[in-house]
């Protein structure tokens, strides 16, 4: 296999929180030792439920929030060692698409200005060249030049997400981190955006780190999938292997919980008991053990490492 584009090793992000007025300082372990490898041209998805740390992981990789610990190697260079100027230069190659296309576009700027800003920040081209590049980009994402003089509020959710994608791609980045890019959209519009993302990946040889809670969307868009639970990656595999032979009991329960649009299919579901534990006070040993139906004595005391159960299939479970 080729050299990884991105390698994340032992990434941690702890947020300090105060409990009560006089409360002692506690930490929320939002991301607690994440390992990920992303190869050029592929789509790696991070999937998990709210609070599992998938968005925090994405933002730490771009250093939009500062990680507490760990290494982030992008094209072999540690992103965490860069100074402000170095980081700005590196961000030309790594861009983010946000979930909420209503909150992530400046309402006072026209679409043309929004798309031009990244080029100005990075000192690319003359005004005429920039204008040309903006015009090309807006058409690539399926809008027209006439849209450039309008303001974000004049667009529908799907159109705004096209603008968000155009802004991320205008610098021709290598890596795009897409954080729930279709979650706010209706299914018929969601399909348009998913198709667009796939087309753009082929056209510009993009690498995607795709963050989502929607298991059907993830199956559609990904090459490989990482499942997160309470700040840790519990399973990574090729999408086919992950969906057809999930190894971690959490992945199995997660997949079985998704309602399938087929009324003739018998529902055969693993119902998890209880709620997600708080990341401020995670369980001992394997974090999943209080909800796991295969829980053994060792699971209560020892954290299972993420190890290769089969070639290319990593699982963090004492059973694997």
């Amino acid at each position: 296999m080729s050299q990884p584009l991105l390698e994340v090793r032992g990434l941690k992000k702890y947020f300090p929180v105060k409990t009560g007025f006089w409360g002692r300082e506690k930490v929320v372990r939002a991301v607690d030792g994440v390992h990920l490898t992303v190869y050029p041209g592929e789509t790696l998805s991070i999937v998990g439920e709210s609070g599992c740390g998938k968005s925090t992981t994405g933002r730490c990789i771009l250093r939009l929030i500062e990680p507490t610990e760990g290494e982030i190697l992008f094209q072999g260079r540690d992103i965490r060692a860069l100074n402000a100027a170095g980081l700005r230069a590196a961000r030309r190659d790594m861009q983010l698409v946000f979930q909420d296309p209503f909150a992530s576009l400046n309402p006072r700027k026209t679409v043309g200005q929004i798309l031009q800003d990244p080029l100005i920040v990075h000192g690319i081209g003359t005004p005429a060249e920039r204008r040309k590049r903006v015009e090309e980009m807006i058409e690539i994402v399926g809008l027209t030049r006439q849209h450039l003089d309008r303001f974000p509020h004049e667009f529908s959710g799907g159109q705004r997400q096209r603008i968000g994608i155009a802004r991320a791609l205008i610098l021709r980045p290598k890596l795009v981190v897409a954080d729930e890019p279709v979650s706010a959209l209706d299914v018929s519009i969601q399909a348009q955006i998913l198709n667009l993302l796939k087309d753009l990946q082929r056209e510009f040889q993009l690498t995607y780190l795709f963050i989502s809670h929607d298991l059907s969307v993830v199956r559609h868009i990904s090459d490989r999938v990482a499942v997160m639970y309470l700040g840790k990656v519990v399973e990574v595999a090729d999408k086919k292997a992950l969906y057809e032979r999930p190894a971690h009991p959490y992945t199995q329960a997660l997949l079985s919980a998704v309602p399938v649009p087929d009324p003739t299919r018998e529902v055969n579901r693993i119902i998890l008991e209880g709620d997600l534990p708080s990341p401020a006070n995670p369980p001992s040993g394997c974090q999943f053990h209080p909800r796991c139906r295969h829980c053994m004595e060792v699971c209560r005391t020892t954290v299972p490492p993420l190890k290769e159960a089969k070639p290319g299939h990593l699982v963090a479970c004492h059973l694997a």
Binding site: E49, L254, A257, R269, I271, L272, L276
Partner: peptide, 10 residues
């Protein structure tokens, strides 16, 4: 979340 959705549907 889907695992909680499953509980509520039941």
């Amino acid at each position: 979340d889907v695992t909680i959705q499953a509980q509520i549907l039941e």
